[in-house]
């Protein structure tokens, strides 16, 4: 997975916890906004659309656009409304292998 983020963190984030993204471990700041933490970790695509499979990533960050939908413990959720918790199991619906 690409790990170079298009974003830079201004401050050193707090303690990290392990989460699972498509079965691979990823260490994200505990309690951080999930969508922001994934972007900061270099995750650039969150899902592929159901219609055409086109890649999507967070667009509005305020719960309106649903483009940051990701599966959390098997349930489709908006990543921008969640906080990072230890051992979260995330999968990207319809996402291309690498992004």
């Amino acid at each position: 997975m690409k790990t170079v983020s298009t974003f830079l963190s201004l401050e050193a984030p707090g303690p990290r916890v392990r989460v699972w993204l498509d079965g691979a471990p990823l260490h994200l700041p505990h309690g951080a906004n999930l969508a922001a933490a994934l972007l900061a970790a270099g995750v650039n695509t969150f899902r592929g659309t159901a219609c055409s499979g086109a890649p999507r990533a967070p667009y509005c960050m305020m719960g309106a656009c649903f483009d940051c939908m990701i599966e959390v413990e098997g349930e489709t959720r908006q990543a921008c409304l969640l906080e990072v918790a230890e051992d979260m199991r995330l999968t990207r619906p319809g996402a291309p292998g690498d992004a």
């Binding site: 401050e11 906004n33 999507r56 960050m61 921008c80």
Partner: peptide
């Protein structure tokens, strides 16, 4: 991906310091 609203970008800065 990589296109966001300016409001969304500001939220990344406010909430995550990105």
């Amino acid at each position: 991906p990589g296109v966001m609203t300016a409001g969304g970008g500001q939220i990344l800065l406010k909430q995550a310091g990105l």
